[in-house]
């Protein structure tokens, strides 16, 4: 009894309704706009900052990078050399301490610590990253600063005084406090990225090394570190990027000075701290432009560092999906 089924009539609907769903299109559109907005923000940041720097770029050109003057007075001459120097010294100095320290922390958290201790210590180290930089800076001036000036720097001077790095008079403000503050701020980042990397080293590789009769350190040196090498590079670059961009805590402890000198005890300025310290004083278009020029240098560096680090991270992630 071949009655016409109701489904036959309904089948026609499949075509009548067509393929267009306003809701789908709307959601797709709205989310696309949001995602593109986030991407566009990056481009807009670059464009606006460079645009703001234009007067200074016209006036000083690339000479800005090597000029060691910051004269907002009647001469209106600006240059970034001292700040680039200060940035390089403080960031690399911080990385020099924080790098090995972070790798050691990550090794402790993945290979050495008893299992019950790994979670709590890992969390505490990451909490260090959550402390606002202005609080680190406050602590840096009022607690760390006197300690550095009264104990650490005199001792360094006494012991290594023959090095120009540790010449000069001990002081609360200077490059060394800035290095220490930056070390505190980037250690949690580098160590948490490194920890993820070490967790990704296959267990059988490690066991294979131990089965050969190696000590734990030899296993780490022979298997874990080489395996995670490129990832560690990425972690260090990320840490460097963070150190270079940190403004507030550095501004609080570095002292503010336009000078290139070898003593870590003397005050200086980084690109970021110079920008931050200018927030109330910039009056002329040229000075504002010069501040934006400093920001441009920072931006270019941070973009390069981040793209490089993320490229490495993604390449590593493809090789070894990190299991959490």
């Amino acid at each position: 009894m071949a009655t016409t089924s109701p489904s036959l009539a309904r089948a026609a609907e499949l075509r009548r309704r067509g393929r267009f769903h306003p809701g789908d299109a709307a959601l797709h559109g709205v989310t696309l706009v949001a995602a593109l907005g986030a991407v566009a923000l990056l481009a807009l940041i670059a464009w606006k900052v460079v645009d703001q720097a234009r007067p200074a770029m016209h006036r000083f050109g690339l000479h800005f990078l090597v000029s060691n003057t910051w004269d907002p007075g009647i001469h209106q001459v600006f240059g970034a050399a001292a700040f680039i120097f200060g940035t390089a010294v403080t960031s690399l100095g911080a990385l020099l301490i924080a790098g090995p320290l972070s790798i050691a922390i990550a090794l402790f958290l993945t290979e050495l610590a008893p299992r019950w201790l790994r979670g709590p210590i890992g969390t505490l180290v990451e909490m260090l990253a959550a402390v606002p930089s202005v609080v680190v800076g406050l602590w840096g001036i009022l607690v760390m600063g006197p300690f550095v000036a009264n104990h650490l720097e005199p001792w360094l001077k006494h012991t290594f005084g023959f090095l120009p790095l540790f010449g000069g008079d001990p002081s609360i403000f200077g490059l060394l406090p800035a290095i220490l503050v930056l070390t505190i701020m980037i250690t949690p980042i580098v160590s948490s990225v490194s920890r993820e990397l070490f967790l990704g080293v296959p267990q059988d590789l490690k066991e294979g090394a131990l089965a050969l009769g190696t000590t734990r350190w030899e296993m780490i040196r022979g298997v874990v570190l080489p395996y995670a090498r490129s990832g560690i590079a990425a972690a260090l670059i990320l840490g460097l990027g963070r150190a270079v961009g940190e403004a507030i805590a550095v501004t609080q402890v570095i002292g503010g000075n336009v000078a290139i000198h070898w003593s870590l005890f003397r005050p200086g300025d980084t690109l970021a701290s110079r920008i931050a310290s200018q927030y109330q004083g910039a009056t002329t278009k040229l000075q504002v432009g010069s501040i934006a020029y400093l920001a441009t240098i920072l931006l270019v560096f941070s973009l390069l560092a981040n793209v490089a680090a993320q490229a490495i991270v993604r390449k590593v992630a493809r090789r070894q999906p990190v299991i959490r």
């Binding site: 489904s7 036959l8 089948a11 309704r17 067509g18 769903h21």
Partner: peptide, 14 residues
């Protein structure tokens, strides 16, 4: 029911 499911204008949601 005689309608090609992969044909043009067919809505997979329907």
């Amino acid at each position: 029911h005689g309608l090609d499911l992969h044909g043009p204008g067919i809505d997979p949601v329907a």
